[in-house]
Design a protein around this nucleic acid. Structure first.
Lengths: 330, 330
DNA sequence: CTGTTAGCGCTTTCAC
DNA sequence: GTGAAAGCGCTAACAG
């Protein structure tokens, strides 16, 4: 396959002139430029981006790292990232952390293939993140907070979110409120649980959840855990779920058992994913600002790349969005 | 930032020995190896993947190219691709074609940054695809068919899909069947329209759609076009939409106008996206095999990379999935 | 305006 | 087992 050398030979000029011409450097005469372009066309020359990046020691691209490229994916968040990345003339690529040690994510985090990364993948270890980040490679964490140089965390006020939601339920007259969650290994889910507990305690209610947090935070597990709760009998009047995915799984379980939502049991989720407004009943949930968070993440990467000082921690508030899955008790 | 050279110096060995050690080449003595590893750790050495790929002239990664990273995204399809890619030990990354000429997609298609690409982005020109593909860089097209060397198309039988769906509607007693579509510039949407038309014609019905195909194939446009159809008055008894996204937009328009689906008008989509089963009424639609298509795409890339001959065209059948958005006329 | 040249950081042959 | 050296394809000083 043709390289810059071949083009130079064919055009009868030097390699550097070809490089200049290809990069639209003004100092190449238009005659030479034409000759070069023609040769490139004829040879179907394709530049080797790796060589170019290597030489320039800059990739002008940032990576967004998710747990699963095929997984549920915050479109709005990605949109926020994408908008500011493109406006800066940078490229954006997504890769996933499936495969653990040998995942594409690790490769991009540790091999200088991009100039910055935005991480949304809890299975990437803190160690990797701390070791990979440097001045020329800032990392933004969207799924945890970590105090380390050149890494900044953008959090959502998870605790306040569930706290507020639980109080709302209490205001609606609920007294038996359960919380269904996957296994929270610290991080955002621990915060969510804490907000729930503190609200119940504050109002003199029993905030110990009857179900041990267990398993993943996905639809299937929401379904299973809800089934378990149903099997135990003596259903609470309201259930808060660690996220919308689990809540939607729960909705399925209730439907199967002929248990009406919200007539028989009220349900509230977290995240406000797109599906939330489409399921029946439409899911009341705790919204987190997605676009803004994504946009800020990208923005901060560029700030850091430009050598500006930035805080290493940001927190966004949540908002309760009321739809049809909660009943007012009388 | 430390390079292999620094590690060599610190460990007191040559560069090549470091390279061998880092790549787990057996011929390095375990004593030297230990020394090297320790030096690497201390310097927080991170390999430059670009340099390595450049030298090896292989990236062992393939790209999946979509119109919009934030867009509606076939999770199942990506899963299929991901599963086989990972099983081959290759990396997978996703990038988008927003930005047209200067998009990340173009960069990955034309700059030898990956070893193969799977394209799901109609706004990439045929010319780019034809010019970029070569023996060492096969391209799989999931969104169109193109006859060119080292590019293979994996199609869904779109025409048969809409044909079958239209006949189903006719069997249910519908006689006035409209088709709502975005502007089909050839490709799959032209096929979908054709299937609809041929079915109506076959049964002696008028298959000219009243609405000129126009605009995008997204929810918003489905909404707008449905509004236009409603404004025209004299609604058909059934509407086929070019895809589920548009159909879901249409559902919204009907809801706003108090027009019942399926009581007043039947609706059918195409694709069977995840949302289809969650909207109310649950959307009847034409399903295409997603996982299988993705898996085949990745599989073929590797076949081609290994120099094996493969067909350059594949077609998958569709399947009608019946839910609640179509009424039987009496 | 164009050419010469010195690398970017790594892998890999070949010699020892 | 280890090292010297060539070179992947490109960019960008520098000289002319």
């Amino acid at each position: 396959m043709a390289t810059i050398k071949d083009v130079a030979k064919m055009a009868g000029v030097s390699i550097s002139t070809v490089s200049y011409a290809l990069n639209n450097n003004a100092k190449v005469s238009s005659k030479t430029r034409k000759k070069i372009m023609e040769a490139a066309r004829q040879l179907n020359y394709q530049k080797n981006g790796l060589a170019s990046d290597l030489k320039r020691s800059s990739t002008r691209t940032i990576a967004i790292i998710v747990t699963d490229l095929a997984g549920p994916y915050y479109a709005e968040l990605v949109k926020g990232i994408q908008d500011v990345t493109l406006s800066k003339g940078y490229d954006l690529l997504a890769c996933s952390s499936v495969g653990e040690e040998s995942s594409t994510a690790i490769k991009f985090l540790t091999e200088k293939r991009v100039d910055g990364a935005i991480v949304l993948a809890h299975n990437i270890s803190e160690e990797i993140i701390a070791m990979s980040s440097r001045k020329e490679f800032p990392i933004i964490l969207l799924d945890r907070v970590l105090d380390s140089e050149y890494v900044v965390s953008i959090e959502v006020d998870n605790e306040e979110g569930t706290h507020r939601a639980a109080e709302y339920l209490i205001e609606q007259g609920h007294r038996e409120i359960a919380y269904i969650s996957g296994k929270a290994i610290g991080g955002i889910h621990a915060m969510r649980l804490r907000g729930y507990e503190s609200a119940l305690r504050k109002h003199g209610l029993d905030g110990r959840s009857r179900l041990h947090p267990f398993g993943k935070f996905d639809r299937d597990n929401g379904y299973s855990m809800t089934k378990m709760l149903i099997a135990q009998g003596n259903l609470p009047t309201a259930i808060m779920y660690a996220n919308d995915e689990m809540a939607i799984g729960g909705l399925g379980a209730f439907r199967e058992h002929g248990i009406g939502v919200p007539e028989d049991v009220s349900v509230i989720g977290f995240d406000d994913i797109e599906l939330a407004q489409y399921v029946r009943p439409a899911l009341s949930t705790i919204m987190q600002p997605k676009y803004e968070r994504g946009a800020l993440a990208a923005h901060l990467i560029f700030q850091m790349l430009e050598g500006k000082e930035v805080d290493n921690y940001y927190k966004f508030p949540t908002k309760l969005v009321l739809r049809d899955s909660v009943k007012k008790m009388t």
